[in-house]
Structures are given as structure tokens and as C-alpha cells.
Simulated assay, not measured.
Amino acid sequence: MTLANAWIPPGPAMLFCPADRPERYQKAADRADVVILDLEDAVAPDNRIAAREALVANPLDPSRTIVRINPAGTGDYRRDLTALAETNYRVVLQAKAESGQSVIDTGLQTIALVETPLGAVRVNEIAEAVNCIGLMWGAEDLVAGLGGKSSRFGPGEYREGSYRDVARHVRAVVRLAAAAYQKFAIDAVHLDYRDHDGLAQEVRDAVAIGYLATACIHPSQVETIRLGYRPSDDEIDWARRVLDGAAENPGVFSIDNQMIDGPVLRQAEAVLARAVAGDAVGLEGSSS
């Protein structure tokens, strides 16, 4: 079940900003497509009162702003929602979402952050909630909840730098659940903000399986994400030729020795949709 007129990200680069640092709010908004004002992990517990006050006193464009709230059932969660009622923000990122009911109870358009073992095994129930407009996943809290020590293979290990299999599994089931219930999906942050090559590889894979956006923790990551989501000139040319061919051929046809049918046509449409989105955030030319 989907919400009518649900919010969707206006671009692929979503930048976290600590809510207790209001001097950074506008800078983040100027750099990224969406700002995630964080009342949870980025804010020390003793600073959360000040963070909520800053959230109310320093408004950003609500069409380009999400607020990450604390997990359901906590005092901070209730206080977060009380503060939000004094703002124009109506889209939240619910930390550690673990049930469909916890999403419904926010009373707001909610992106569910699946980052615990229980959330992962209940991802379909979460995605089905009517006010769940999207899903995001997180690796570090997930691994902590497993009693593990790292979400990625380390130096000298097999597939160094890439996610371990349990994290890859949750990334996949989040994407599947989002698609099954017609919600968008946001890929997790790449914590090593200096590793632009690694981020670029993850973005390419996210695009290939239909993620709509990628979250980030540093402004320097924004351009890598934008470039990764925007199709190359060759991809755009291919997609246009596919759509032109479909207009002239009512059935299956061939382009460059590739058979074009319904699924390939939908892939071409997705490529052009990403190109339009890239143009909307000011990107130009080839990117991949």
C-alpha cells in the first residue's frame, strides 16, 4: 500500500548534518540534494535538548529536508516528535525501525532505517506500512546487533573493503522489500569519506539494482554520488534509441544485436529518469 502524493528525494545525494550544529544547516543544504538533520547518533545524549531547539529555530526548506528521529519507544523519540510538531518538517527517518506499527505511530511520512537484526527480518512488514514512503539500511548498527566487529572485509582479507555477506544480504532484502511495496530505497553511507573510488563503486552497484539515492556523511562525497547516479552520454543515447525503437515497433525488436522487450524497455525508461533527475540538480555532460 502506498501513500498518495508521497515525498520523493529531489536528487540522489543525501547528506547527514548533526542537528546540534545549526551553523552547518545551510551549508549542508547548499551542497547536497537533501539534508538529513540528525537527532540520533550524531548528537550526544546531553546535547539533544539543544539539538531540538536548534531544529525549531533554524528552518530549512522542508521539501529538501529529512529529520532522523530516535528509535520508537524511547523518551528521545517522543520528545523528537513533539519538537517536529513546531516545524514544517513532515518527513522523518526513523532510526532502528523494527515493526510496521512503529512506522505508523510517527504519524508522518517515514523512511524506515533498517539497521538491526529484528528490523532486517521484519523488513517486509515495515515496508508495508501505509506511511512508509521509503527504506534505508545501515551496516554498523546491524553488525553491532549481531555481536560482530566489522561490516566490511579488512586489509588482507578476501574482498578487502567490500561488505561482508550478512551486510550484503540486508542491503539486498531492503531493496527487494522496497520494490515489492513500491517504496524508494536509499543506500547506506560509505564511512571512509576519503575513499571516493570505493564510494563510486558502491554507487554504481546501487544504481544497477535500482536504489534511488545514497546517504553520505561528508560534503566531499556529494559529487561522487551525483555523478554515479547520472547516466553517461552513451547510456542516455542507448535509452533514447530503445524508446524510439519501441515507438516504431509494437513488439520485440533489436538494437545493436540486443533483443529489446518489455523489461529492457523499462530499464531504458529508468536510465532517462535518472538523467532528468541529474539535470534537475545541475549536472552536465557525461559522468560514468
Rank of each mutant, 00 (worst) to 15 (best):
A72W: 14
Y229A: 03
G278Y: 03
P250W: 07
P231C: 12
A57H: 12
E98Y: 00
P12I: 12
G228L: 08
D141M: 03
D192T: 03
C132N: 13
A206C: 10
E160C: 10
D61H: 09
P10K: 00
V207F: 07
N124M: 12
E86W: 00
G107Y: 09
G119R: 04
G251M: 11
R152E: 04
R226Q: 09
R204M: 09
A215E: 03
D261N: 14
P22R: 05
P155V: 11
I186R: 04
D195F: 09
G285H: 09
P62R: 03
Y89L: 10
I8D: 04
N257D: 15
D41P: 03
R194L: 14
R266A: 14
L227M: 12
V103N: 08
A268R: 04
I66H: 01
A85F: 02
S232F: 10
T110Q: 05
V203S: 08
V123C: 04
Q109C: 06
P18M: 11
A4T: 13
V121N: 00
D205N: 08
R230H: 13
N70V: 07
V114Y: 07
S151R: 10
G262S: 09
T82Y: 09
Y89C: 10
A177T: 01
P18V: 10
A6S: 15
D33H: 09
A139Q: 04
G134E: 06
V103K: 05
V114M: 04
E98C: 05
V56S: 05
W137V: 08
A97F: 05
D46G: 03
L265T: 12
L93A: 13
E115C: 09
V103W: 02
G100A: 14
V92R: 06
G73R: 10
A185S: 15
T116G: 03
V252G: 08
N249W: 04
A50W: 05
A72L: 02
R241A: 07
I69G: 01
A139Y: 07
L176E: 10
P59T: 11
R31P: 00
L84T: 06
Q267I: 03
N88A: 15
H190V: 02
M136I: 13
D38Q: 05
T214G: 00
P45C: 11
R230L: 01
P263F: 13
